[in-house]
Amino acid sequence: MTRPILSARGVDKYYGGRVGCRGVSFDLYPGEILGLVGESGSGKTTLLNVLAGRLSPSGGRVLYRGPDGSEHDLQQLSEAGRRRLLRTELGFVHQRAGDGLRPLVSAGANIGERLMAGGWRRYGRIRSEAADWLARVEIPADRLDDRPADYSGGMRQRLQIARNLVTRPRLVFMDEPTGGLDVSVQARLLDLIRHLAARLDLAVVLVTHDLAVARLLSQRLMVMKSGQVVESGLTDQVLDDPQHPYSQLLVSAMLQV
């Protein structure tokens, strides 16, 4: 029986008197993609940041299980330990690719940064690894020395994904990875994420307000409203037969074409 890679137990986050998220508990298993859906302001991104150790929760615990089976509470780890974990076994894909990339250096340096932070000191190897990952995210090899500013929005997002995956993380957090992209680019990116996640056996926590994205990528879904999880279950089950009135509203609000 496999054990969860990430467990949340009664996670709360308050901003002063305001609720970010409240009482969230779930288990995420290796290789599983969990979608967090809900309207803007429902606490999805807050929850994601708490899960990723980028925000400290007001209450509850988040446990990450390493490849050796050891459990780490991201908040109990030293800052050095947490940062090391975040740039090796974990990944974070920002909604705006610019937030997750270094604008002043080439794509190769962006992909190589995690490797160099991990102690790689041979230029030739770093470069060939970066080129390899560029190919895996379907960016032409001759763009290796271009800066992210010279990339299109879709390519930038794929570059950000490559930069995260280069250390073979086991768990990646994604905040609206397809937000702000046009529909055809979105489709291609979704296809790429699905493909990579399956190939690398990645566990993903995916925040999106787009139910179509959730349907395509995630196996399980949690619907959030006002900081709380109002419904969770298998994606098809939640989308085809929503139980909670808010989920029903959300599903019926989806445009049918």
Partner: peptide
């Protein structure tokens, strides 16, 4: 923070960029 934790990968990013350019 980078100095305090001795996280100097970034310095090599600059050297990498130099060589690739």
């Amino acid at each position: 923070v980078l100095h305090a934790l001795g996280e100097y990968g970034l310095m090599y990013v600059k050297l990498y960029e130099d060589i690739s350019r």
